[in-house]
């Protein structure tokens, strides 16, 4: 018991929570933006993988870290364009298109990686983002360590607040939400729902790719093809958990990251007794549990997964 308290009171745990949460925050915000406009984007897992690869590759080739992040975002936009072309213009099944994008983007990242980077025993490394010591804050006992994070983490938190503001305080956000609820109503008010959906999917996919790039540019320093490890799917679940609200998405990502960071440390303490796979499983089980509790009273965007065709009801 005292071990657990030790873990919970260590600043290292809470610093890790913010770090682990960052790619989840970005991915969840991206998926949330797509779904608010009525498009489910299961391309997320592949888009994150590709973002991780291309961002890393740009930096390995001499680009600076921010340019790497930007290139990752641009690659995400391209996949977003593909997904919205298939689902919005052609009106295909959003599930099938999304899974297709994931399979394609994951394999394509590995293929490009093998093509562009020589095979070596250990994967080549870059110098990732370094934690920023915020003057004043960094010198506080406990909190100083927790809040010494790399720049993309702060960007992710900032983006969550920005997305919340855009969705709920601006005419553009209202247009996005109306498109996700009833695209016919949006059109009757002179808004082009197709355009709104394209925009939401393209920018949402950019956020997903940035989440992937965080893994190679900040959390680690090299690219491994399987490194996204289902984080994309967790983001899809977190959107439901968050009832399609950016603030709650932020909280949900932090909660999941807490489970993950906690189980890592718990393994060190009682790992000898319990097989480590149980610990790996725990955050996922807990997130399913949280989903069951949270998602029962939520209101799904009414037009989610419904293709919009003009003049048809």
């Amino acid at each position: 018991m005292s071990d657990i308290i030790d873990i919970l009171t260590s600043a290292g745990l809470w610093a890790a929570v913010l770090r682990i949460a960052t790619p989840l925050i970005l991915g969840t915000l991206g998926a949330l933006l797509c779904e608010r406009a009525g498009v489910l984007n299961l391309g997320i897992e592949g888009v994150m993988t590709f973002g991780a690869m291309i961002g890393w590759f740009a930096v390995w080739n001499g680009a600076d870290l921010w340019t790497g992040l930007l290139i990752a975002a641009l690659s995400g936009m391209l996949f977003g364009l593909l997904h919205s072309g298939l689902t919005v213009t052609l009106g295909l099944s959003q599930h099938v298109s999304g899974l297709g994008v994931t399979l394609f983007a994951s394999s394509f990242s590995y293929y490009l990686f093998r093509l562009l980077v020589p095979v070596e025993g250990t994967p080549p490394k870059i110098i990732p983002f370094q934690p920023i010591r915020i003057p004043g804050l960094a010198d506080l006992p406990f909190l100083g360590e927790v809040f010494t994070q790399t720049a993309p983490t702060w960007v992710a938190i900032g983006l969550a607040l920005l997305l919340a503001f855009v969705l709920f305080r601006t005419p553009l956000g209202l247009a996005i939400r109306m498109t996700g609820e009833n695209p016919h109503a949006a059109e009757a008010q002179g808004i082009n729902p197709m355009l709104v959906r394209y925009g939401a999917v393209i920018f949402g996919s950019a956020l997903m790719a940035m989440g992937g790039a965080f893994l190679t540019l900040s959390a680690f320093d090299s690219f491994i093809p399987t490194m996204v490890q289902g984080r994309g799917w967790i983001c899809i679940a977190l959107v439901v958990f968050a009832s399609w609200r950016p603030g709650r998405a932020l909280a949900g990502a932090l909660l999941f990251a807490f489970f993950d960071a906690f189980q890592l440390r718990l393994q060190n303490v009682i790992g000898g007794v319990v097989p480590y796979q149980i610990f790996l499983m725990a955050p996922f089980l807990l997130s399913i549990l949280a989903l069951v509790v949270m998602a029962r009273r939520t209101r799904v965007p009414q037009a989610l997964m419904q293709p919009y065709r003009r003049g048809e009801r």
Binding site: P171, L172, L174, A175, R177, M178, E181, N182, H184, A185, A186, A188, Q189, G190, I191, R299, P301, Q302
Partner: peptide
């Protein structure tokens, strides 16, 4: 042409301001 999950005001205001 209304969205059940939005408020009355939001339904009415959609598209009335510059995006």
């Amino acid at each position: 042409s209304l969205a059940p999950n939005l408020s009355v005001l939001e339904n009415v205001m959609t598209g009335t301001e510059s995006l």
